[in-house]
Write a protein that binds this DNA or RNA. Structure first.
Lengths: 207, 207, 207, 207
DNA sequence: TATGAATGAGTTTTCATTCAT
DNA sequence: TATGAATGAAAACTCATTCAT
């Protein structure tokens, strides 16, 4: 296998990362053994160590990739969308509705991680990442408020938190109860609820 | 030793259950060791086995209790509230805002469980439980629609799913990022968004 | 085993330390497995971890104890002996001739350690310890020179090095070829060689 | 490929043997991995197996070569030296003072081996080898006694043991504390101590 | 009943060895 | 011949569970 160059190595790395993300999300970080992951990737346990120094390294890599995907998602949509609200909707659609196996992991992995690990280890990074996302959401909401798409009297921070919570929750439910759920309808309704905030503006700032 | 009556036994059982729930939520099911739990309950590791046959039994008991609490929560509120929407709001408030350590576990434990276990074991029960909750929510929403508190053209199933997802997500965020979050504002906004569905009804059923 | 107090715990710790020292010396640090050590101590592998956090901890403990024994040996003899040379001889005798299994490990363990480990880990401590011993030997030799027991023209540093080398070497040989060796005669001759340095003084400082 | 002749194969074998000896001595037999050795020899791990059937084979080969070098050392010196004592001194000098990396391994390797391996495997050979060396030393000492260079009342066996022990010990110290040691002075003193045995003869056999 | 020492099965990790290229 | 990816058999370590006290 002397000729199996970088390309092959990269592909392997990817497939391990993929398998790990899948299993971390499915079984939890602790329950997913290196053997499980190796099997899922079509390898023996020991082989993984050629690509990742330890289970923790692998975990970190999965996490980093999830973070990166998330950022890319936000960046792409906010750059290409015609308006802030549209951007928000597109991001929401991609998280709620459209997704391959890999995309769905963006949030699950983080939740699985946080549920399964000592906060001292990863917790800070996870928490920081969630906060960053919340800030991004808040900025987009404020932009939408500035452009008149969302009621300016709404508490942007609170809305960002709700969107994050609902998205996270939906990911978990999709992952676990996948078949018995009609995501599309839920997403449409969510959009409607956010849009509805325009009409109810007077009620809002009088509370 | 005959004097160590049922009362004492029950108290011990309770405190173990309590400690277990706390630790399962805090560290994840796998990372919480029997010794951890015993220490948290003020016992030695071996003693737990007098009250629960195995860690799995304990896990199951914690789960069952969480389910039971959840049911009690719904029952109490729907019986005492003056209207369906108020009931929903009260339930929401108790889940989002008011809660002692124990209550906050209602959802976390479920998430922790689902994140940490092989779906073959617990998954079905968890999934079934979540479905039951969704049905309950749906019934309450439909009741609110019947009484004119919520726009009747709204998809009750979708709303139930959103409420469940958001509540679950909020629990996780509270558990992990607790300090940096303003739950009360988020809850108020959530209430407003659900209420807002009344005003936007015409838009909704024309989609 | 609730009543098995500190005394029992200490005894266990001792016996594990004992077994570990024996096996480290006999098979080398790497080849001596935790199971080996446990078996030698009459335990299962896992049990050791109740007393020592890791194999490295155990190694360190064995090392520390060896150092301590060594120091005690030097201290006792140099305090109680009637003269510096006698002290040196007594120390020598205890290292070369008299010794139970445990004492013989004083040096072997250090050699086994150094032979089997990455110098980055333990090497510095080992080296420092050996240097300390050499300094002690040198001081004793100089005292003997001051009191006229050893030729003052002898290079005390060089003699200390020789004594340390010979003692270390002897320990290894004893450990490995034990039965086929007549230690007593070798020790007597060594004493004679050191004593002989008195007579050859003139030759020495004329070189 | 037919051109890659015996010459090339032998050179490769030599360089692997060299690398292995160096690493066995430096890191210990267990800690030196086949990859380490291969890298040190400028090869890949798998390639070694073209020259040595297994790590154990390689170990054995290193050992055998060390033995052979040792024997050659003794043979050369005892043949070329003008007198038995001079031969002993020359051998000593080559072991204590002069040596390239490879020569210094003569003893270290044996010590590393013995420290790192189950006595059942190699131990016997090692022990036998050491005994052979001791016998050689003894013969040379006896020759020196016969020629009047060393006091005939000295116990030749005991002196051989001391020389072997001191040489072995020195090798270890040199390997590990190399820089902080003045070998030359120690060697000179050792020579002096052996020579001194001439003068102290009367004292010796009267003890 | 409670303790906590001990066991043993399971998990991560390492590395000699094999083998497709 | 040489490579280095992959395997698989240990070895370190963890922890649910048992049991003598």
């Amino acid at each position: 296998m002397a000729r199996v160059t970088q390309q092959h190595v990269d592909a392997r790395r990817e497939s391990i990362l993929d398998a790990a993300a899948r299993l971390f999300a499915r079984k939890g970080v602790n329950s997913a053994t290196m053997s499980d992951i190796a099997a899922e990737a079509g390898l023996s346990a020991g082989a993984i160590y050629r690509y990742f120094g330890s289970k923790d390294d692998l975990l970190r890599a999965v996490f980093d990739e999830a973070v990166e995907r998330n950022e890319r998602l936000f960046r792409e949509e906010s750059e290409s969308a015609p308006s802030p609200l549209t951007a928000l909707q597109n991001i929401g659609r991609r998280i709620w509705v459209e997704h391959d196996d890999r995309d769905s992991l963006i949030c699950e992995v983080q939740m699985a991680l946080s549920a399964a690990r000592d906060p001292d280890d990863f917790g800070l990074d996870l928490s920081r990442n969630r906060q960053v996302i919340r800030e991004l959401l808040k900025s987009m909401i404020e932009a939408a408020q500035a452009s008149g798409e969302i009621d300016p009297y709404i508490d942007a921070t609170a809305l960002a938190l709700i969107l994050q919570a609902a998205s996270g929750g939906i990911q978990t439910l999709k992952l676990e109860d996948g078949d018995s759920i009609d995501i599309q309808s839920a997403f449409d309704l969510m959009v409607q609820m956010v849009s509805g905030l325009r009409a109810s503006s007077s009620a809002a700032h009088e509370r």
